[in-house]
């Protein structure tokens, strides 16, 4: 590999070369790059990619957020209870520090439970904004997930939301959901 002694002058590259470098980056690296500076984020946003969109899976005590592409899962971010310092990093998202541990394209997210909604929203917004991709689906496992309705506004632009649980949603809950998502969002209810 080239010597790391001096920084590579990325922003002195001709435009086409700069664009090609960004196009060569893996999904996880593009997201990390978008966190370097506003200028980096602008370039990431303007970089053409072939990712399909975001899929979210959420239960009362776990979540995963993944970016799908034509090769399958491009990156996956998921909640984790166990924290190791190896390869860990701290992101500043919307003014809050979020501790992350990365293994290739898997990102484990450590967070206090009370910040869960904020963190999920921040990560999803970061991905959608940086990569300019849609939210394809949300799978919400409602069993034991008392405040799941609070999360609905975070997913208002998802193309599809599936509610998976033992008991069906009440009329009142269903009205709330319908009033807080886009009219284009497909809603599905499945027994657990």
């Amino acid at each position: 590999m080239p010597s790391p002694s001096t920084p590579f002058p990325l922003f002195r590259l001709p435009y086409l070369a700069l664009n090609e470098v960004f196009r060569s980056l893996e999904c996880g690296d593009l997201i990390e790059m978008s966190l370097c500076s506003k200028r980096c984020k602008r370039i990431v946003k303007s970089t053409r990619n072939d990712f399909f969109g975001i899929r979210i899976f959420i239960t009362s005590n776990y979540f995963s957020i993944r970016v799908d592409g034509k090769n399958g899962v491009e990156t996956m971010w998921m909640s984790s209870q166990d924290h190791h310092d190896e390869n860990s990093r701290v992101y500043m998202l919307n003014g809050e520090e979020i501790k992350i541990q990365r293994l290739l394209n898997i990102f484990e997210v450590f967070y206090p439970q009370e910040h869960r909604q904020f963190i999920i929203t921040s990560i999803v917004n970061l991905m959608m904004d940086s990569l300019q991709i849609p939210m394809l689906s949300v799978d919400l496992h409602t069993h034991g997930f008392d405040d799941f309705l609070d999360f609905i506004p975070c997913f208002q632009n998802s193309r599809k939301i599936s509610f998976i649980g033992i008991t069906p949603l009440s009329e009142e809950d269903l009205d709330f959901v319908k009033n807080n998502v886009s009219s284009d969002t497909e809603l599905q209810f499945s027994p657990f």
Partner: peptide
């Protein structure tokens, strides 16, 4: 050759933190 060079430069970013990326590529702060 341009593709190959850009790939080598892109590979420098693999698994790096934003802080490391700033150093590797000399990225100015906001």
């Amino acid at each position: 050759l341009m593709d190959y060079c850009c790939r080598v430069i892109g590979d420098m970013a693999k698994d790096k933190t934003p802080e490391e990326l700033r150093i590797i590529y000399g990225i100015p702060t906001d």
